[in-house]
Design a protein around this nucleic acid. Structure first.
Lengths: 269, 269
DNA sequence: TTATAGTAAGTATAATACTAACTACTAAAG
DNA sequence: CTTTAGTAGTTAGTATTATACTTACTATAA
């Protein structure tokens, strides 16, 4: 119920307007007095509130004695709002795009918050034209799966290093099993996540457990290249591991504890 | 420009947020101080304002010294908002429809304001399933033309009495030329406009020049029938006029000035 | 006299919008 | 070598508006 109020308020209705409208949906036509009784909106406010709803076209006046009110059917209200917002979107898309200046290539943008980071990843993946390099962790996969499948369908080359279950497949998938995920996480100070597309743009993020995710995004050619090569080396190493067997690789690491263990503590703030 | 602000504000941005975002679109990346300078948003507010934009994902932080900001490209901002609102709409459509009670047949709903009356007409026309009877005036035609064309394409019978140019065609169109539009307008106290569909629902409206339009809408079978028959008689009379010639009909009227002239003054309040 | 229908006046709160005055740093001009 | 102007940002306080909430009042009809 609260959820419904929240969504309606995003469309420009006040709390009282929501209550009055939903009250009317449930029973109509009724007087202002009765809307107030049923919904808990104060009697002294109800005529102002329904007045606004009438102006917006969400409620009809039924000319009876005394005057009663009837709601616009829910489907039609939503359909109207949808049309109006679509118009706004079309208009704004055109107008805003027109006044936009060129983007700088060498800026590095920071993004904070799980949802926003995911949104940026989806966008970057959706913008891929020829190739896509990913280094991702199982828990994030469901959020971006559909975008990636879209890429695969368009014939875009997708190469993924995945920290997670062997069954999960995301494009050409290589499982990062020459080093345990725990060690990788410790080394990086979190779950390092990378998405690079078309040697043009890269997002480097960190999903630390319990903390809010963050990421940086850039078109700086040097950074894009480093991130891409990093993933490619990971993939080549996975291939080597497959060839030699994990034991030999493991042994190789053990002779170099300085490389195997965390060196500088947390690498990210 | 004002228009753009208004539309953006409907999407949940404050005046200052609009200014800051648009300022950033025009030039980026820049510091908060410079956004303030360019947009007129007070320096003392700018960090709170861009902070909100960053939270909403509409602006990136560019980690430089000093910190600068960069906007999410307009297309992507709009695309995101579109997705979010679509979700809201889908959710609300389902939830609200679920709690809606049956509509009463015999209520008469009143609608005030040009835009709302037009919106209701469009909806009624769009809901037609088998037949549609219209009595409309030229100036309203462009607003509802597309809906009517939709009906014609679906094979719905559309009968229209039109007060307006002979060239304008709206379904099966009959031009109301046995009485001058001026006289008709005087008789009715405005431009009486009717739309009836499927012997089920009718809208009776009045577009008076210079004043705000109003209408009533009902499913009361008696009213629907009266309105429909009224239009049908008009059409039959137009046919008679075509047969006899306008002169004879004119002469017929002249012998009955009580019918020809306004009887009760303004018929509508 | 009780329930219905509606109005008037006033308060509380939060979000937004606006102003003034302050610190701190840098770079150029006198 | 200080003064001035510009950049960058903070703190505090006010005005305005929209929304939310009370209390108290007038009618009227069963």
């Amino acid at each position: 119920m609260e959820e419904i109020y929240k969504e309606l308020q995003r469309l420009g209705f006040s709390q009282y307007e929501c209550k009055a409208y939903i009250g009317l949906l449930k029973h109509h036509p009724i007087t202002g007095y009765e809307i107030s009784k049923r919904t808990g909106v104060p009697r002294s406010m109800i005529y102002e509130v329904v007045g606004k709803l009438v102006e917006k076209g969400a409620v009809y006046i039924v000319p009876s004695e005394p005057v009663t009110y009837s709601p616009l059917p829910a489907r039609e209200l939503i359909a109207r709002q949808r049309r109006q917002f679509e118009q706004s979107f079309d208009y704004l898309e055109k107008e805003l795009a027109a006044m936009e200046s060129e983007r700088e290539v060498d800026v590095i943008k920071r993004i904070d918050g799980d949802e926003l980071v995911i949104a940026e990843m989806k966008e970057l993946i959706g913008n891929a034209k020829a190739e896509l390099w990913l280094s991702i962790w199982e828990p994030q996969v469901p959020f971006i799966q559909t975008q990636i499948d879209g890429c695969c369908d368009e014939g875009i080359d997708v190469f993924t290093v995945l920290f997670g279950k062997a069954e999960t497949r995301v494009g050409n998938t290589y499982h990062h099993d020459y080093m345990s995920p725990e060690v990788a996480e410790e080394r990086m100070g979190g779950r390092l996540t990378i998405a690079a597309r078309d040697v043009e743009e890269v997002l480097i993020g960190n999903f630390a457990l319990g903390k809010s995710a963050w990421a940086v995004k850039t078109r700086d050619p040097a950074l894009v290249l480093v991130a891409m090569e990093y993933i490619r080396h990971d993939i080549m190493f996975a291939e080597v591991t497959k060839e030699l067997g994990p034991e030999k690789v493991e042994a190789l690491w053990r002779t170099r504890p300085d490389l195997y263990h965390v060196v500088t503590g947390k690498r990210f703030k």
